[in-house]
Nucleic acid binder design. Structure first.
Length: 632
DNA sequence: ATAGGGTTAG
């Protein structure tokens, strides 16, 4: 008797099981085809209705139908219905196959219900590659990277071999170079390196760790490739401010017959941004028009115009953009502020508060920068003190730095020191450098020495600190101290980076280094330069040798000043461009006081608009004044 | 049934 009963139970199970096996399709409920057709039509209410009827009649559909039903729930974002399907599938002690459970796990992942997915996953009697990969990709998607890596280990321990899906998912979660090296060799071992998904994920992972050569290595071995692989390697260089290489790769991509898509163009624009290539950026803009609706791409375009100092274009783009997000607003606010339009930046922030997205950490930085630039000490304090209450953002090191800059401009050195002591995070090199800059501008020798020493404590090789300190001593004609600083620099093997300026003329970059004589038009440039200096001297200009590092004889320091790279670039710009064209120069070091004055006077005399971008700021010279307000 | 690339500051 007992045996018969057991057999009946088994039969029952077998019968209900057979409903989901395609091998026993003749047992599948006749409603199944109706259910399927509702699912294909994405008619969720009717599909659920059909399911109810089947439940009442005690019949089941097959796995194909259930997985279609789950797709339908996903399409409608119908969480409740999805859970219903889940319960239905497991009702009456039915044990669905791994395939179907995977579909359910995936459903919970897509609904962002990771815990539910994990519970279901844990209960699975057997898990295959797809089960594991679904969970790993879920965790790497939400950046629970440790969890994703951990799951890979468990998976391997379970004897399941990862496939290309697994590797491309887990590579996104990889944070340590040693792990990445292991993953890479694992990929080579199973021969998955030719998969384009794995390849781009590998490139991206190396890029995230700053291992660009490794990334390039993976790329160069490419036998198989698609546009995403190209985009990965181009983005890698663009993001690590090697715009030159990024643009070269872009050209090779085009030569290889691939078209640029949104992602490619975003990286190209970023490369133009970092190289200040306005004209090339404009050319890229033409291609951007094809992807009019792409927010990320438009943000990159906006940033390019801001960073290249063309605010007219930036405003045009910004006003035309349909769905502006925090990044669009932040970019525009910071762009206006950096280019000297502080009031406009603050006005824009006001309209953002009314009709824009919620400001974030970076937005506030732009706002503080605007205050700093315009010397609005009280407003700066207000925004700084209220950012926590108004926007729930804790001031970070960068915010402190902006405030310090603001106080430094206003000459409030004591308040700077107080604020540094008040900082919630440890002051870093940038903090002290800001103090040092202020000390130089306001000639506070003692405090400067203190700041410079703090910098060298943190970074033995900070060229800037030594140069600034030496400049301060030079300003006070303390040549012994200058010599001492120079001796320390020599001992530590520190050399002042040579000043270099670039200008784009006819799609060509012309580079100038201090005292450079290699430019083909150097004679003409020098003739014109001497002409300007003579004329300026006649009108009362005195070379400001305070910025010269070494205690050379006056004549020699005048010579070196006269041939500072930005002067050469300015003169070259004047020779090359018609009057109405803005002369745009970018350089690797901060502009010196003498060149700054030179630029102001020449801009006025020649009625030119000159823009010089240094590593931190922008200087718009027009009508004898500079947008920086003579503080930098 | 499971996978890869792009935007703001520093």
């Amino acid at each position: 008797m007992k045996g018969v009963q057991r057999r009946l139970v088994l039969l029952g199970t077998a019968w209900s099981r057979s409903c989901s096996y395609s091998a026993f399709q003749h047992y599948v409920a006749p409603e199944t085809s109706l259910l399927l057709s509702h699912c294909y039509n994405r008619d969720l209410p009717r599909a659920m209705q059909t399911l109810d009827t089947m439940e009442r009649r005690g019949v089941w559909a097959d796995a194909i139908a259930y997985s279609e039903l789950i797709k339908c729930c996903l399409a409608h974002k119908a969480v409740k219905e999805g859970k219903h399907v889940h319960n239905h599938i497991f009702s009456n002690g039915y044990q669905p196959k791994t395939f179907l459970v995977n579909t359910l796990v995936n459903m919970y992942v897509k609904f962002n219900l990771l815990e539910e997915a994990q519970i279901l996953f844990d209960k699975m009697p057997e898990r295959n590659v797809v089960s594991w990969t679904t969970m790993i990709s879920a965790y790497s998607y939400v950046k629970l990277n440790d969890r994703a890596m951990e799951l890979l280990v468990f998976m391997l321990r379970d004897g399941i071999l990862p496939n290309m899906y697994t590797f491309s998912s887990v590579l996104r979660a990889c944070e340590r170079l040693s792990d990445l090296t292991q993953l890479h060799s694992g990929i080579l071992k199973v021969g998955l390196e030719s998969d384009v998904f794995v390849r781009s994920a590998l490139i991206d992972a190396y890029s995230k760790m700053g291992e660009l050569l490794e990334a390039l290595g993976v790329f160069r071995e490419m036998v198989t490739g698609d546009s995403v692989v190209w985009n990965s390697i181009i983005a890698a260089f663009a993001q690590h401010t090697d715009g030159d290489e990024a643009l070269c790769l872009y050209k090779s991509m085009r030569r290889a017959g691939f078209l640029a898509d949104q992602s490619t163009l975003t990286s190209v624009l970023r490369a133009c941004t970092s190289l200040s290539l306005l004209e090339l950026g404009r050319q890229a803009h033409v291609h951007v028009l094809k992807f009019d609706q792409d927010l990320i791409l438009n943000n990159a375009l906006l940033d390019m115009y801001c960073k290249c100092g063309s605010m007219e274009d930036a405003k045009f783009i910004f006003n035309r953009m349909a769905g502006k997000d925090v990044i669009s607003w932040s970019t525009m606010i910071a762009g206006l502020a950096q280019n000297g339009y502080s009031t406009e930046a603050l006005n824009l922030f006001d309209s953002m508060k009314v009709s824009g997205p919620r400001p974030n950490y970076i937005t506030i930085l732009g706002v503080l920068f605007a205050c700093s630039h315009a010397g609005l000490v009280n407003e700066g304090w207000y925004y700084f003190r209220s950012m926590k209450n108004l926007y729930g953002i804790d001031p970070g090191r960068e915010h402190y730095c902006c405030m310090l800059d603001l106080l430094g401009r206003a000459g409030k050195l004591d308040e700077m020191v107080t604020l540094i002591h008040e900082m919630t995070c440890e002051p870093d090199v940038v903090t002290w450098r800001t103090l040092l800059d202020a000390c130089r501008a306001h000639r506070n020798l003692d405090l400067a020495t203190y700041a410079a020493k703090e910098i060298t404590k943190l970074d033995q090789h900070d060229t800037g600190a030594y140069v600034l300190l030496s400049n301060i001593y030079a300003n006070s004609k303390r040549w012994d101290d200058v010599a001492e600083v120079r001796r320390t620099m020599r001992e530590r093997g520190i050399r002042k980076e040579p000043g270099c300026s670039w200008i784009e003329v006819n799609n060509q970059i012309h580079a100038f280094i201090v005292g450079d004589k290699s430019h083909p038009q150097i004679d003409e440039i020098n003739r014109k330069l001497n002409q300007y200096i003579r004329w300026l001297t006649d009108t009362g200009y005195v070379p400001d040798t305070n910025f010269v590092l070494q205690d050379l004889g006056e004549e020699q320091s005048e010579y070196s000043l006269r041939h500072h790279s930005e002067k050469l670039a300015i003169v070259f710009g004047i020779i090359s461009f018609p009057r109405e064209k803005t002369i745009r120069i970018w350089k690797n070091l901060k502009i010196c006081g003498d060149c700054h004055m030179f630029a102001k006077l020449v801009a006025k005399q020649e009625q030119r608009h000159i823009v010089i971008r240094d590593p931190i700021r922008y200087h718009h010279f027009q009508d004898g004044v500079c947008s920086c307000g003579d503080y930098w």
